[in-house]
Amino acid sequence: MSVHFRVDPTEFADKRVVVTGGTMGAGEAIVKRFAGAGARVATAARNLPEAPVTGVTFVKADLSTEDGVARLAEHALSELGGIDIVIHSLGGSSTPGGGFRAATEEFWQQELSLNLLAAVRLDRLLVPQMLERRQGVVIHVASIQHRLPLHDSTTPYAAAKAALASYSKSLSKEVGPSGVRVNTVSPGWIRTSAADRMVQRLAESGGIDEDQARQGIMDALGGIPLGRPAWPEEVAELVAFLSSERAASIHGADYVIDGGTVPTL
């Protein structure tokens, strides 16, 4: 089950878009949303997808490394001739349950490289050509965990996403006067395969079943007033709106899409 929206096939015609993390979850939905609206899209993954999206260029690269980011940037600029929109949807957590004691140096480095430095490095390579043209859009997909961290297993992830949100705000203040818009999207719990894997990991480390692990996440979040997690397509729709001319005056903002999970303003 998922949701579907009617898409104007010309909405992003002639736009050149790079999406990180575009082979699964919200990233995959974002790739399909832009491709379906006429954009030329490039994305990267460690392994090429089994079912490539028509019109999308896939680059085999590990974006948690400098070399992988450089490979994507070089390929995208060469193939597309320039980039109009950059969407950083790459992210995830592999840290096991057990709180801060279980978060070893290795896990901290992994989470920071994946959830923060991949965006920083790619922006450094792609935003300058936007500044030269005095137009462009950058969207960083963070997480409500930069406000509402789950201490049992995702402290490094939450800290990296908090850093990403802070970096995004700083970048917006720097490049906004030159015509480049920067915003952050902070999803809550999204119904993805990665979320399911986190539930399995917590169940295994805690010696409980998956229903208990899932309820534990809900309890730690304080519940979802809307009664369900967001679908990846809903996140993609918000990203598309913020990337469009309809959002031409929205800049330096953080848009939360969490079904009401964050209990404060």
Rank of each mutant, 00 (worst) to 15 (best):
235 V>Q: 06
9 P>R: 14
82 G>F: 12
158 A>H: 05
191 R>L: 08
253 A>S: 15
148 L>P: 01
131 L>C: 03
76 A>V: 11
32 K>I: 00
3 V>R: 14
70 A>I: 09
91 G>M: 08
251 H>L: 12
98 G>Q: 06
34 F>N: 08
253 A>V: 14
210 E>K: 04
263 P>Y: 06
122 L>E: 08
227 G>Y: 09
115 N>G: 12
80 L>V: 10
69 V>L: 05
96 P>Q: 12
39 A>L: 08
82 G>T: 12
257 I>E: 12
206 G>A: 13
147 R>F: 06
111 E>F: 07
4 H>C: 02
87 I>P: 07
259 G>R: 08
47 N>Q: 15
117 L>T: 07
71 R>E: 15
161 K>C: 02
54 T>L: 00
138 V>P: 05
194 A>C: 00
212 Q>L: 11
172 S>Y: 02
149 P>T: 14
26 A>D: 05
47 N>A: 15
132 E>M: 09
25 G>L: 10
134 R>W: 02
168 S>W: 01
227 G>F: 11
208 I>A: 02
258 D>T: 04
171 L>K: 13
196 D>C: 00
79 E>S: 15
184 T>C: 13
240 A>S: 15
19 V>E: 12
219 D>Y: 09
17 V>D: 13
64 S>N: 07
209 D>H: 03
211 D>K: 13
179 G>H: 02
23 T>D: 14
139 I>Q: 11
142 A>F: 03
166 S>G: 15
56 V>W: 03
158 A>Q: 06
22 G>V: 13
231 W>I: 01
261 T>Y: 07
258 D>Q: 10
62 D>R: 01
108 W>K: 04
60 K>Y: 01
179 G>N: 01
210 E>I: 05
201 R>W: 00
173 K>Y: 03
155 T>S: 14
25 G>M: 07
255 Y>D: 07
92 G>L: 13
171 L>W: 07
43 T>L: 03
121 R>W: 13
7 V>A: 05
39 A>Q: 10
153 S>Y: 14
213 A>F: 03
254 D>A: 11
190 I>A: 10
182 V>D: 08
127 V>Q: 10
146 H>W: 13
12 F>C: 06
43 T>C: 04
182 V>Q: 06
195 A>M: 04
53 V>F: 00
224 I>L: 13
111 E>P: 02
265 L>V: 15
195 A>R: 07
24 M>Q: 15
155 T>N: 01
223 G>I: 12
80 L>Y: 09
68 G>M: 09
152 D>R: 13
228 R>M: 05
9 P>Y: 11
78 S>C: 02
143 S>Q: 07
168 S>M: 02
92 G>M: 10
176 G>E: 10
126 L>P: 01
23 T>E: 10
43 T>V: 03
25 G>W: 05
245 E>A: 14
16 R>G: 08
49 P>Q: 06
155 T>D: 00
162 A>K: 11
